[in-house]
Amino acid sequence: MSTATVSTSNKLARRPFVAELLKHRDGALVVPGLGSATWDCFAAGDSPEYLYSWGGMGLAASTALGLAMARPDKRVLCLTGDGEMMMGIGSLAVIADQAPQNLALLVLDNERFGETGRQKGLTSTRADLCAVAKGFGIAQTMLVTEQAQVKDLAQFLFKTPGPVFAVAKIALSEDPWSLPEKDGVTIAHRFRVALGIEKA
């Protein structure tokens, strides 16, 4: 009997959790990882300041780093899943080294590869992402397990001098499909228009 799809003890419901969190973003740019993190952002309400992703697994954190370096005047949030973060885990060392004060990361950790059949991921047993982030030199970390922590989390992600790193332990859930624009040229164009880099 496979244990690959047993439920976790995590309580957070991802869609209302992300929607409530993003209400507090206060103009922050959001770089969601591919898959569920991107669907969650779109479900919370479309914005040109969301850089939706449909690929490039492992690159959300490094993309957010580049953006944060280019735009020190803007807060940048990387919002990604546990599998996506694991694939780019070394990026946390690069972020600690560059130390952008305007960069925050939040891992939506359901301990599963959600898009491919909910196979167990490496955070389901012993891997502790906050400990990894600390070990790489990101001093400020936060673990979130309750919806009531969302305001504290928002303060941490959007106001605390970065780089900061948080993990939210989210439940497995069946959420309706919420698919944003998938043409990368369109996504990049409207993002750069929102930043005043390109004309509409």
Binding site: V31, L51, G56, G58, L59, A60, A61, S62, T63, A64, L65, G66, L67, A68, M69, A70, R71, K74, G88, G90, S91, A93, V94, A188, F191, R192, L195, I197
Partner: peptide
Amino acid sequence: STEEEGMGVVTGQWLGG
């Protein structure tokens, strides 16, 4: 830490101008 992170950083930088 590995070369492919460079694609993320340069793309993020370009998105930010």
